[in-house]
Amino acid sequence: MSGDAEGSRLSSAPPPPPDEGDHVRGKGAIVVIEYGDYECPYCARVDRMLAELPVRRVFRHFPVTSKHPRARVLAAAGEAAASQGRFWEMHDSLFGDQGHLDDPHLWRRARELELDLDRFEADRRSAAAMERIQRDFRSGIRAGVTTTPTLFVEGERFVGVPDAALLGRLGG
């Protein structure tokens, strides 16, 4: 994961614009890129706030595992659901209830979303899921993300829960 190969360096770079690899939803002229962590309560709150706004939302994983030990496992559950076309459903499920984040709870969530459970189990432990999460995480590091949630709106960085001024700008 380290070394001098192009793309593996962590020097400063703006967050990449949304591409086909991103999780995107919502319609609106303004794009909000969110770096978040499913074990972070402030992220859950911000996610709910953004859902009410007329914006195009991009969610990128920023799991800080020394602080949130389950963060990477939960991000991988999101990616495993994504491979069955249900990323946002799992995303909403995780942020909707952060009190039940152990493996049996993930299996229950997967069943509720009618996912193929064997495939979900294999996918959430796959190298592809880990690479996908690392891609997000490292783009966040390069963009100077130091905590979650961090939002990027039209090139500007906003840390934490949006204030009234930002909400107004986003049409809230």
Binding site: S2, G3, S66, K67, I141
Partner: peptide, 17 residues
């Protein structure tokens, strides 16, 4: 501070590299 050191911890391998 917690956030600061946690973030550096996450990429410690890269610093070592």
């Amino acid at each position: 501070c917690t956030d600061q050191l946690n973030i550096y911890q996450e990429v410690l391998e890269d610093f070592e590299a």
